[in-house]
Amino acid sequence: MFLEEVDEALGRLFRSDDGAIAKDLHFIKGSALNIGLTEVSSICRSVETKLREAPARDADLRAIQTAFHKAKLEFASGALE
């Protein structure tokens, strides 16, 4: 369920305004941290900070997407439990 919800939130990141992006980043950051995806959570925290300092679409949203998909593959292979 978490993976599906995060996939949906990630999709919205690329179609939303800064306010919605901040909300989805916060959701992804907290959810990822709760299940031990510290890299995903850390990247979200960094992007949240950048958006607060200078609201712009140049935040590295692709880094979040890449880290999440890497974690999904690790889950599927049993590397993360």
Results as ranks from 00 to 15, higher is better:
75 F>G: 09
49 T>P: 05
52 R>K: 05
34 N>V: 13
45 R>Y: 10
61 L>K: 03
13 L>G: 04
72 K>W: 01
38 T>Q: 13
36 G>I: 03
34 N>I: 12
59 A>E: 12
23 K>G: 11
38 T>K: 11
63 A>S: 15
4 E>D: 03
35 I>N: 09
7 D>V: 06
61 L>C: 06
74 E>D: 15
76 A>G: 03
6 V>L: 00
31 S>I: 09
45 R>L: 15
28 I>F: 09
11 G>T: 10
50 K>L: 00
33 L>C: 07
38 T>P: 00
78 G>C: 00
9 A>S: 04
18 D>F: 14
70 K>G: 11
14 F>I: 07
62 R>F: 07
35 I>Y: 10
12 R>Q: 11
44 C>W: 05
30 G>H: 08
36 G>W: 05
14 F>A: 10
23 K>E: 15
50 K>Y: 02
77 S>E: 13
4 E>S: 02
5 E>Q: 08
12 R>I: 14
12 R>V: 14
33 L>T: 04
43 I>W: 02
79 A>L: 13
50 K>N: 07
4 E>C: 02
2 F>V: 09
46 S>T: 15
38 T>S: 15
77 S>D: 12
68 F>T: 07
3 L>F: 11
48 E>I: 03
65 Q>E: 15
78 G>D: 00
49 T>H: 03
7 D>N: 05
66 T>H: 07
74 E>Y: 10
29 K>P: 05
11 G>E: 12
61 L>D: 06
71 A>E: 08
79 A>F: 08
40 V>W: 07
44 C>N: 02
24 D>L: 01
35 I>G: 08
73 L>I: 14
73 L>V: 14
55 P>T: 10
8 E>K: 13
76 A>I: 07
20 A>S: 11
7 D>I: 10
13 L>M: 04
71 A>T: 03
81 E>N: 09
80 L>Q: 03
39 E>R: 10
36 G>T: 01
19 G>Y: 14
81 E>F: 04
77 S>H: 06
42 S>N: 13
72 K>V: 08
58 D>E: 11
19 G>W: 13
59 A>S: 13
29 K>D: 02
50 K>T: 03
35 I>T: 09
12 R>G: 08
23 K>S: 12
49 T>I: 09
61 L>A: 04
73 L>P: 04
2 F>C: 06
74 E>P: 04
52 R>D: 07
29 K>S: 00
21 I>N: 01
79 A>H: 06
19 G>R: 15
34 N>C: 15
22 A>Q: 10
13 L>Y: 01
75 F>A: 12
